[in-house]
């Protein structure tokens, strides 16, 4: 039978600073910079090492990032694309965010579905929205968009047609709104 219990914060909880030290030592030279921001560990990684890093994060007994939080990307325009993957450890109560820089031209990255099966849909979404190819993904077809959709909507170069055609109808700034809005 199921139970209701007061589950306090995990007794094995590790402070983010200490956890970032663990991440740094366990990942070794696979990872680049490791820092802590807003209590979350941020790791920057080389594209080629992403699967290694994810396997270590998940498998290492001192990290145990068993909870796959999300995977997405951001278009940094001149600086290319950046893939952001977040995983959490339910035992040590920490979140690690892995960032991988990719070029804007023909971006591709090894799929992490082999490590976290849950990355499946996240990678499919990322692929259609940013045009990133995830190598080794079992079924890299469109997730949200129709099969014949052209373009990658979340790239900055993809303009929202309606706003180009017709500007935002109301006031966009508080000062304008106070003055009765744009006519």
């Amino acid at each position: 039978m199921a139970t209701t219990k007061r589950f306090p914060r995990s007794s094995e909880r590790v402070e983010p600073e200490a956890f970032s030290e663990r991440v740094r030592s366990k990942l070794g030279n696979a990872a680049g910079e490791v820092q802590v921001r807003f209590n979350q560990v941020i790791v920057s990684a080389e594209p080629g090492r992403i699967v290694d890093i994810m396997s270590t994060l998940k498998g290492d007994p001192e990290l145990r990032c068993d909870y796959f939080t999300f995977l997405s990307a951001v278009d940094l325009q001149e600086e290319g694309l950046e893939v952001i993957a977040a995983v959490s450890s339910t035992r040590f109560e920490n979140t690690v965010i892995v960032k991988v820089a990719l070029p804007s031209e023909d971006p591709s990255l090894a799929s992490v579905t082999g490590v976290y099966a849950g990355a499946n849909w996240h990678e499919r979404e990322c692929a259609e929205m940013f045009g990133i190819t995830f190598e080794g993904h079992p079924n890299l077809v469109k997730l949200y968009l129709p099969e014949d959709f052209e373009g990658h909507p979340l790239l900055k170069s993809f303009k929202l047609a309606s706003r180009t055609y017709k500007p935002w109808p109301g006031a966009t700034e508080p000062d304008e709104a106070a003055g009765g809005g744009r006519s």
Binding site: S10, N39, F68, T69
Partner: peptide, 23 residues
């Protein structure tokens, strides 16, 4: 956990993961 399932569904499987408590 591997699929990032959370909320009542994850807790139904016995994992006491609740952001209100863990973070």
């Amino acid at each position: 956990l591997e699929y990032g399932v959370s909320g009542p569904i994850l807790r139904g499987s016995g994992v006491p993961y609740d952001v209100r408590r863990t973070d």
